[in-house]
């Protein structure tokens, strides 16, 4: 049943009622599906899936509201005064500015979109998107707590994440129009459009967040980490494995340091790869970015970010750790 069919017939029982009935049915079923649900694995998946959505929703909403506020209240003049006119210099400035957004990566995607709609160069906004979840104060503190007595790990994480963000930013600058970044039209300027923009952005990004959460929960539930551990021996394979795990597990950047610290089989450099790749790119972010900026963009952006993050983290790890 497509939307247009529903609207053409203008039935008395429309989509909205259908959703309401589905939810009420689920409430009446009231947990009894738990008995039929195929055992512990499925229930664990359910818990993880809901956990990722519940944890991310307030952050996504915060990001959407901030993005709507940027689109409405932040003038292009202010942005122009804060950032260097030369985009090659503006990229690193945006990277360092990421320190100021103590949120997780879910908030960063709509904020980057808001900045682009406000007239910021995509390369500069995307640098901010990559840097903010990786180097903000909350992440620095949690990394220091997870690796006690190992300040080099914190320094290496900040450095490698920042370098990754700036390098990808410059790459975006070079690509220019060929990035095929899709942005939606700037919101109209009348009355309650702040609310309308926020609602629309939330619905837009929320579905992709749920899709990413489903995949991440499945990886966390069904792939035993001992599979991951068996390849920990070889340096290159270990780094790539940790990168793949960071991409698929899609953990919050505030908690991933604890997981990295618990992977005792891996070298410090492999752990660093995990910490640098995770906040920059994971399955949840890739889904949200392809929703926000278009699939053609995501197909270029996602592999480049992954490659640059793995290479940078390996080099910094070899140097500092």
């Amino acid at each position: 049943m497509t939307e247009s069919q529903v609207e053409e017939r203008t039935p008395t029982f429309g989509q909205a009622e259908l959703v309401a009935v589905a939810v009420i049915t689920a409430m009446l079923v009231g947990g009894s599906l738990r008995e039929y649900a195929d055992g512990e694995a499925f229930r664990t998946w359910c818990t993880m899936f809901v956990a990722v959505v519940v944890q991310s929703t307030p952050f996504l909403l915060g990001g959407v509201l901030l993005s709507a506020a940027i689109a409405r209240f932040l003038s292009e003049g202010v942005l122009r005064r804060v950032l260097p006119a030369n985009p090659v210099l503006a990229v690193p400035v945006a990277g360092v500015a990421g320190v100021g957004l103590p949120g997780c990566e879910c908030a960063a995607v709509p904020i980057a979109d808001g900045l682009i709609r406000r007239g910021l160069r995509p390369a500069v906004a995307l640098t901010f998107l990559l840097a903010a979840p990786a180097i903000n104060p909350a992440v620095i503190v949690s990394t220091a707590v997870a690796f006690p007595g190992h300040p080099a790990m914190v320094a290496a994480r900040v450095l490698a994440s920042l370098v990754t963000a700036v390098l990808v930013g410059w790459w975006c600058l070079r690509r220019g129009e060929r990035l095929r970044l899709r942005t939606r039209a700037a919101p109209h300027d009348h009355g309650s459009d702040f609310v309308a923009t926020a609602r629309h952005d939330f619905l837009h990004a929320g579905g992709f967040l749920v899709a990413g959460a489903m995949i991440a929960a499945a990886i966390n539930t069904f792939v035993p980490r001992s599979v991951v551990d068996t390849v920990a021996g070889q340096a290159l394979v270990a780094a790539l494995t940790m990168a793949a795990f960071a991409f698929l597990a899609a953990l919050c950047s505030e908690s991933d340091a604890f997981i990295a610290a618990s992977m005792t089989a891996f070298s410090d450099t492999a752990k660093l790869v995990f910490l640098v790749v995770g906040p920059a790119m994971d399955v949840k972010l890739a889904a949200m970015e392809s929703g926000q900026f278009g699939a053609a963009f995501a197909r270029q952006f996602v592999p480049v970010v992954l490659t640059v993050a793995v290479a940078t983290a390996s080099l910094v790890g070899w140097w500092l750790l």
């Binding site: 589905a22 939810v23 689920a26 409430m27 079923v29 009231g30 947990g31 599906l33 738990r34 649900a37 229930r43 359910c46 818990t47 899936f49 809901v50 959505v53 519940v54 749920v210 959460a213």
Partner: peptide, 10 residues
């Protein structure tokens, strides 16, 4: 997520 919370009650 809503359907899962209500129907499965993880």
């Amino acid at each position: 997520p809503t359907l899962v919370v209500f129907a499965v009650a993880p």
